[in-house]
Design a protein around this nucleic acid. Structure first.
Length: 634
RNA sequence: GCUGCUGUGGCUCAGCAGGUAGAGCAGCGCACUCGUAAUGCGCAGGUCACCGGUUCGAAUCCGGUCAGCAGCUCCA
C-alpha cells in the first residue's frame, strides 16, 4: 500500500499501481467524472498514470490551470488529426496549449482559408463523437526517429533529434493519429465538449524568421458550451475597448495613411497627455530628478561612439545636413551622456538623476505597427541615473518603487521580466554578470516574482521589464530598468572619488510609462475610454435646457474654469435627453443640467456618467466634491 | 519584413455572378422652447485606397503599389 496526500491534506491509502483515475473514483464518482489529469508531487500526469509510491496528489479538473492545459492540448491533437484526415500531405510541427486556448502549426502547400477552418471543425466534431481513447507509449530514440520518418513527418524527426539523450520519448495515440508529445492528455477525445477554431496565421518554424513559414491555426476549447460562448462574447466586448477605435471616437488621437506609425494627438488627447506629464514631473521633482531635453538629430559620429551604429543601425533613420551625416535619435542616452560630460563630477554629486521626455524615432517593421502601442515615433519618459557602483542597489530599488507607485495609481496589474545578455551586445561576460546579478538582487530584495527572458536584454545591458495588459490580454512592455556599464566606458564618463582619483560611474536607463503613447493606449483600453475625472479631457459638461438658461449656464462654466476644471457647454437647440445621451457617449464624468430650478436657486443638477442622476446641489458643493475627486485621482 | 485577410462619403455598413453608387449616424438649413440616453422635415457630401491590365463597358475580374487587421519576427 502507498500513502497519498490529497489537496485538503488528508491521507488516503491505495494499492501500489492504482491509477489517478481510480484514486479519483475512490474519492467520489462526481470528481472522477470531471477529472482531466492529476498532479503528482507537482508534476502533471495523465489520469492513467499509476501511483507507485507515497506522494501528494491533486486531481485536476477544468477549473485548474493544469486541467485546462491538458484539455486544450488534447483539443489541439484532435485538430491535428482532423487536418491529417482532410489534408494527408500536411506535415505536423508543434501544437501546444496556450493561455486561453491552443494552436497547431502545419506545413501545407496551400494556406488554410476560413472555409477550411469550418471543414476542420466539422471533422473535429466527428473525431470527438468517435470518442477515441488517448494512449501513451514510449519508444527508444532511434525507433522514435524511424517511426516518424516512416510517417513522413520531418519536423517531428527534427524535434526528436533535438531531445536530450536519455530523455524518455513519448507518443500519444488516438485512433489512427499518433503524435510525439510529452503530455499530459485527457483520457479520450469524447471528453471535449465545446471548441472553436479562431484564426489562421503564418508562423515561422521554431520562431526563427530564417526558417520556413508554417500555417498556424488558433483555437480554444471549454468544458461547457456556455463558457465558450461567454469567452467569445468577452472577446467581442474587448474589441469595443480597442484604443484605436476609442481614440478616434473620443477625438483623442489618430493615425493617418500619410504617416504610418506616426500618431497625431488631437486637442483632447493632448489634455490627457499633459495631465500625465504634469503628474510625472511632479513625482520626479519629489524624487530629485532634474529634467533636460536633448536634440532629436545629432551627428552620426556620436552613434558610432555609443555603439548604436554597430548594434542598432537597422532601427535608425538617417539624414544629411549640408555635407554632414546625421542620425535621428532612436534613444535618448547618447544625448544624456554629453550632458553628463559637460563638466567634472564629484562623488558627492552622485547619484545624478537626469530625466528627459524624449521623442525618439525607430524604424519598426510595417507588420509590427499597432495603433499607439507600436509606433515609429514616441516619447519616452526617460531618465539616466549616474552613480557609484555602491549606489546601484538603492537606485534600482528606488526606480522599482516609483514604477509600482505609478502603476497602482491607475490600478494596473503588471508582471516583471528580467532580460539577460543578447547575442549582439557589447562588453565582457563579467560586466554582464555583475549587472544581471545586481538587478536580480534588487528583485529578490523586493520579493518580486519575475520571469527570466534569456537573451532579451538591450545591447548595452540587462534589464527589468514591466509588462501591462491590453484589453484582450496581450501584454506590452512599458516600464523598464536597464543597467549599463558600457556607455559610461565608451563615453569615458568619470567622477572624482573621495580618494581624489577618477572613477567610472555606472548608469541606469529607465522609463516608467515606457512610452507616453503606449501608456495612453493601455490607459484608454483599461478604462474603456471612461477616464477617471483627474484624467478626463473634459471633466464637466454643462447642459442648458432652454435659451433663457444660457446666461446662468455660462456663469456656472466660468466658476468651474476659475477652479481649473475642464468644461464644455452645450447650448444647442436640442432636447435635454439628446444632450445627455451625447455627453454620456463622450464618456464625460459629470453633466450639469441647467434649467429653471437651478437658475433660480443658484444650483446645478448633477448627473454622473457612472451613477446617473444625483439630484440638485449648490454650485459650491459640486465644485468642492469634484475638486476632492480630482485630488484623490479617484 | 513574412503568411493570410481587408480597403466604398467624417463614422458604421449595403452594393447578388461587371452595365459608370445607396442607407443609417455625424454635418448643414428650417420648424419645434421641449427637464435626465436619439423631435420632425429638408439639403449637401463619394476620382468606390492608388497605378496598370482584361473588357464595348469595372467599385465589382487580374497584376502591382500603398495602408489597415490577425499572427510570426522584433520591441517602449
Amino acid at each position: 500500500m502507498i500513502k497519498v496526500t490529497l489537496k485538503d491534506g488528508s491521507i488516503k491509502e491505495y494499492e501500489k499501481g492504482t491509477t489517478i483515475l481510480e484514486a479519483a473514483k475512490a474519492i467520489s464518482e462526481g470528481l472522477a467524472r470531471v477529472a482531466l489529469a492529476g498532479e503528482v508531487d507537482g508534476e502533471v500526469k495523465d489520469l492513467s498514470y499509476k501511483l507507485e509510491k507515497d506522494c501528494k496528489l491533486n486531481i485536476l479538473t477544468f477549473d485548474s490551470e493544469g486541467g485546462k492545459h491538458a484539455y486544450r492540448h488534447t483539443t489541439s491533437h484532435v485538430m491535428a488529426q482532423a487536418v491529417k484526415r482532410l489534408y494527408p500531405e500536411a506535415k505536423l510541427a508543434i501544437g501546444p496549449a496556450i493561455e486561453n486556448g491552443f494552436y497547431y502549426d502545419f506545413d501545407v502547400e496551400k494556406p488554410f482559408s476560413p472555409e477550411d477552418l469550418s471543414k476542420i471543425e466539422e471533422e473535429m466534431a466527428q473525431i470527438i463523437k468517435e470518442d477515441y481513447p488517448l494512449e501513451r507509449f514510449t519508444l527508444p530514440r532511434d525507433e522514435a526517429i524511424a517511426f516518424m520518418e516512416e510517417r513522413n513527418e520531418p519536423y517531428k524527426v527534427e524535434l526528436i533529434r533535438d531531445l536530450p539523450e536519455g530523455e524518455e520519448i513519448s507518443f500519444y495515440k488516438q485512433g489512427d493519429f499518433v503524435d510525439l508529445c510529452a503530455g499530459p492528455h485527457i483520457p479520450s477525445t469524447g471528453k471535449i465538449k465545446a471548441f472553436k477554431l479562431l484564426s489562421v496565421a503564418g508562423a515561422y518554424w521554431r520562431g526563427n524568421e530564417k526558417n520556413k513559414m508554417l500555417q498556424r491555426i488558433y483555437g480554444t476549447s471549454f468544458s461547457k458550451k456556455s463558457e465558450l460562448d461567454a469567452y467569445l462574447f468577452r472577446l467581442e466586448e474587448a474589441k469595443k475597448r480597442d484604443h484605436r477605435k476609442l481614440g478616434r471616437e473620443l477625438d483623442l488621437f489618430d493615425i493617418y495613411d500619410e504617416g504610418p506609425g506616426f500618431p497625431f494627438f488631437l486637442p483632447k488627447g493632448m489634455v490627457l497627455r499633459n495631465v500625465l506629464e504634469d503628474f510625472w514631473r511632479e513625482e520626479h521633482k519629489k524624487r530629485k530628478y532634474q529634467e533636460i531635453r536633448t536634440p532629436v538629430i545629432l551627428n552620426e559620429d556620436l552613434w558610432h561612439r555609443s555603439g548604436h551604429w554597430d548594434h542598432y543601425k537597422e532601427n535608425m533613420y538617417f539624414t544629411k545636413i549640408d555635407e554632414g551625416n546625421f542620425a535621428i535619435k532612436p534613444m535618448n542616452c547618447p544625448g544624456g551622456m554629453l550632458v553628463y560630460k559637460r563638466r567634472l563630477h564629484s562623488y558627492r554629486d552622485l547619484p545624478q538623476r537626469m530625466a528627459e521626455l524624449g521623442l525618439v524615432h525607430r524604424h519598426e517593421l510595417s507588420g509590427a505597427l499597432h495603433g499607439l502601442m507600436r509606433v515609429r515615433c514616441f516619447t519616452q519618459d526617460d531618465a539616466h541615473i549616474f552613480m557609484t557602483p555602491e549606489q546601484i542597489k538603492d537606485e534600482v530599488l528606488g526606480v522599482i518603487d516609483l514604477i509600482d507607485q505609478f502603476y497602482s495609481v491607475f490600478g494596473f496589474k503588471y508582471h516583471v521580466e528580467l532580460s539577460t545578455r543578447p547575442e549582439d551586445s557589447m562588453g565582457t561576460d563579467e560586466q554582464w554578470e555583475m549587472a544581471t546579478n545586481a538587478l536580480k538582487d534588487a528583485l529578490e530584495a523586493k520579493k518580486m516574482e519575475y520571469k527570466i527572458n534569456e537573451g532579451d536584454g538591450a545591447f548595452y545591458g540587462p534589464k527589468i521589464d514591466f509588462h501591462l495588459e491590453d484589453s484582450i490580454g496581450r501584454t506590452w512592455q512599458c516600464g523598464t530598468i536597464q543597467l549599463d556599464f558600457q556607455m559610461p566606458e565608451r563615453f569615458d564618463l568619470v567622477y572624482i572619488g573621495a580618494d581624489g582619483e577618477r572613477h567610472r560611474p555606472v548608469m541606469i536607463h529607465r522609463v516608467v510609462f515606457g512610452s507616453i503613447e503606449r501608456f495612453i493606449a493601455i490607459l484608454t483600453e483599461h478604462y474603456a475610454g471612461a477616464f477617471p475625472t483627474w484624467l478626463a479631457p473634459v471633466q464637466v459638461k454643462i447642459l442648458a435646457i432652454l435659451d433663457k438658461h444660457h446666461e446662468y449656464a455660462y456663469k456656472v462654466q466660468k466658476a468651474l474654469e476659475e477652479k481649473g476644471i475642464r468644461t464644455e457647454i452645450d447650448i444647442r437647440n436640442e432636447k435635454i435627453g439628446y444632450k445627455i445621451r451625447e455627453a454620456q457617449l463622450e464618456k464625460i464624468p459629470y453633466m450639469l443640467i441647467i434649467g429653471d430650478k437651478e437658475t433660480e436657486n443658484g444650483a446645478v443638477a448633477v448627473r454622473s456618467r457612472k451613477d446617473g442622476d444625483l439630484g440638485a446641489m449648490s454650485l459650491e458643493d459640486f465644485i468642492e466634491k469634484i475638486i476632492k475627486e480630482i485630488e484623490m485621482k479617484a
